[in-house]
Amino acid sequence: MPDALLTLQALNAHYGDFQALYGVDLRVDPGEVVAVIGANGAGKTTMLRSIAGLLKNAPGAIRWKGQAIGALRADQVAGRGIALVPEGRLLFPSLSVEENLVIGGQLGRKGPWSLQRVYDLFPILKERRHQQSTSLSGGQQQMVAIGRALMANPELVLMDEISLGLAPVIIRQIYEALPGIVGEGLTAVIVEQDIAKALSVSQRVYCLQEGRVSLEGQSQTVPREDITRAYFGV
């Protein structure tokens, strides 16, 4: 097996006295798409927030290319090459579409992604580039959030519920853009509640239930009855 790009080893996460993750193990290899599924409250977003440095963890619980990063700040994690597309998009409402995108590139990492490349991926954003970002439709705002992450030229992009609350036609457009995002060796972890969608775009899948990994397998071969048991705990 190739050396892992990202590993989680016995990752625990807390919000104050509340424990949200219990000993989570996960591996992401270079160039693959890993899906993470689970019901609301299963710990999916907490896991991504931990990886991105928004929650402090034991240093060795999260390793990037073998190096312990669990205690790094979010800006330090981003500088290593990890970008987050957060749940709910979290755009800067006072800024235009283009200004939101430019902010994503402030770390100055070199790579293939630029404003023009993002506009090639999502042409509607070029048309709306001078509009206030939050004046766009939900789907277009999601495109801005994805583009902002890509502008950081990451090696790993974490996508948290990118289809949440969007119309099916918009979801299809966003997922149709995914091959253009990962086609140059970019690695992705995609959190989704839509099991079929998650399995269709990934090589491997993890299921979280109540803060624990309840299933790990190959997306195209894992038995659907196993997923049901892991997802619902029945």
Rank of each mutant, 00 (worst) to 15 (best):
A61F: 07
E225N: 14
I171F: 02
A177G: 00
Q142C: 02
Q132N: 14
L6S: 08
I146L: 11
R80Y: 12
D160M: 00
I162G: 00
G38V: 08
W64H: 08
V144H: 01
G104C: 02
D160V: 02
V201P: 03
A188T: 09
P112V: 13
L178E: 00
E98G: 03
R212A: 14
Q9M: 11
I69N: 00
P112G: 14
G108N: 01
V34P: 06
Q9I: 13
E216V: 14
L90E: 15
Y231R: 05
M1H: 13
Y206F: 13
L48D: 00
G60V: 09
N40Y: 09
F18C: 11
A52C: 07
P168A: 00
S94M: 11
A4L: 10
S214E: 07
G217Y: 03
S96Y: 00
G147F: 02
R229S: 13
L5R: 11
V77N: 04
P30E: 05
I227H: 08
T134D: 13
A61I: 10
L150H: 04
F122H: 02
I171C: 04
G60M: 10
E127H: 13
G60C: 10
V102M: 11
V144N: 01
S163F: 02
A4G: 07
F122Y: 03
A78G: 09
T45L: 08
G211I: 06
R49M: 14
V85K: 10
R128I: 05
G139P: 06
E87R: 10
V28F: 05
I171R: 00
R148L: 12
I170Y: 00
I195L: 07
L84K: 12
R73Q: 15
G79V: 06
L95Y: 02
A39F: 09
G88V: 12
A42I: 06
A198K: 08
F18T: 15
R63E: 10
A4S: 15
W113G: 02
D29K: 09
R117F: 04
L48S: 07
R229F: 09
S219M: 03
V169H: 12
G139N: 07
D226C: 12
Q218M: 13
P93I: 08
L107H: 09
A145P: 04
R148P: 07
F18E: 14
L186G: 01
E192W: 04
I37A: 13
T187C: 03
M151D: 05
D226T: 14
E161R: 06
D3H: 14
G38D: 12
M1W: 13
E176D: 15
K126W: 04
I82C: 06
R109G: 08
L91Y: 02
Q131P: 00
G211A: 08
S133P: 05
F92V: 10
V201L: 05
A42W: 03
